[in-house]
């Protein structure tokens, strides 16, 4: 097991390196100059500009900039914000929790709802309910989260005044953003679970279970469910990455605290270090979550567990 964890972590390193390189290059290749933005308030003398560029290290050749950034990042230092002068690490750690909360709430919601709806749809396949669920899951996958968020605010908050529209504090204010973020993921999960259940229902052992005289309920909820949901665990894990990224968008719709807020401000100011930092932290989270998901999958699927033990 220890060997497996080490191997997975090692395999994550190239991914993260790739992420840093891509985000580093993209930021510098798109038009926009951080220094010009900072100096927009007053007279931007060439000396002042050159001084700031030198201070931020922007006068160095790109490879040098990249390597020094990488070296600092390895030591846990993601640089200093151009705009606020604060350490990026502390800015991110201050905003990380609400985003992670939101992403995990949405992940939990999409997994539970997706499994529930998927199993229900498969159990009553080709019925009206099944059709309804399928339409919902297709629509859900197709709708952008910010639009879902706006609709939720419009209907739930303004029309029915049931839940607050904006803000970050408390469970109540987590519900709407989590739902908005989860809807597309629920759609994906529902379709996957439905397909898996139908596939498992066609397997030989299900016929054998019927031959044993077990009730359809027992067969569906005890045997088929477990076999169908297990492969979906991996997808649920993969979705968390997308949900973390999506959280950033949803946060701005609901004016929530979090990395989304941070990133929005950083983009408007071309605040390279903050942008890089947020992307890298999200990337690292995604890699981490995937490792955890793999391990969990290995732990719950006896076939994988024993093949690992055999190594």
């Amino acid at each position: 097991m220890g060997y497996l964890i080490a191997r997975r972590i090692l395999a994550g390193i190239p991914t993260l390196l790739g992420v840093t390189l891509v985000v580093f290059l993209i930021l510098r290749l798109v038009p926009g100059d951080p220094v010009a933005g900072l100096l927009s308030g007053g007279p931007a003398t060439p000396e002042l500009v050159a001084g700031l560029r030198a201070q931020f290290g922007l006068d160095q050749p790109l490879p040098v900039q990249y390597l020094s950034f990488l070296g600092d990042a390895l030591q846990g230092d993601l640089g200093t914000s151009y705009a606020t002068g604060q350490s990026v690490t502390s800015m991110i750690s201050g905003q990380l929790l609400p985003t992670v909360q939101l992403a995990f709430a949405a992940a939990l919601l999409s997994t539970v709802a997706g499994i529930g709806l998927g199993v229900l749809a498969a159990a009553v396949r080709n019925s009206f309910t099944d059709g309804l669920i399928r339409v919902f899951s297709v629509l859900g996958t197709a709708m952008p989260t910010f639009w879902i968020g706006l609709m939720l605010i419009l209907v739930v908050s303004f029309q029915f005044r049931m839940l607050p529209a904006t803000g970050s504090d408390g469970f109540q204010r987590l519900i709407l953003p989590a739902v908005a973020l989860a809807v597309p993921a629920i759609g994906v999960m529902t379709r996957l679970v439905r397909a898996n259940v139908l596939e498992v229902l066609g397997e030989n052992f299900v016929t054998a279970l019927h031959a044993k005289g077990l009730s359809y309920r027992t067969i569906l909820l005890r045997h088929v469910l477990r076999n169908a949901v297990l492969p979906a665990v991996t997808v649920a894990g993969l979705q968390i990455g997308g949900l973390l990224a999506g959280a950033v968008v949803v946060e701005t719709v609901f004016a929530r605290q979090g990395l989304g807020n941070l990133i929005l401000q950083a983009i408007t100011r071309n605040d390279y270090p903050v942008l890089q930092g947020v992307v890298i932290v999200i990337g690292a989270l995604v890699v981490l979550v995937n490792i955890v998901v793999d391990l969990v999958y290995g732990a719950v699927d006896p076939r994988i567990r024993s093949s690992l033990a055999g190594r």
């Binding site: 397997e203 030989n204 052992f205 016929t207 054998a208 279970l209 031959a211 044993k212 005289g213 045997h223 477990r226 076999n227 297990l230 699927d301 006896p302 076939r303």
Partner: peptide, 17 residues
């Protein structure tokens, strides 16, 4: 209970989990 059945593919006739 009264009628039981054994199938052709023993490996796939048991729940793998």
């Amino acid at each position: 209970r009264d009628i039981a059945m054994v199938f052709q593919e023993p490996m796939s006739s048991l729940d793998p989990l």
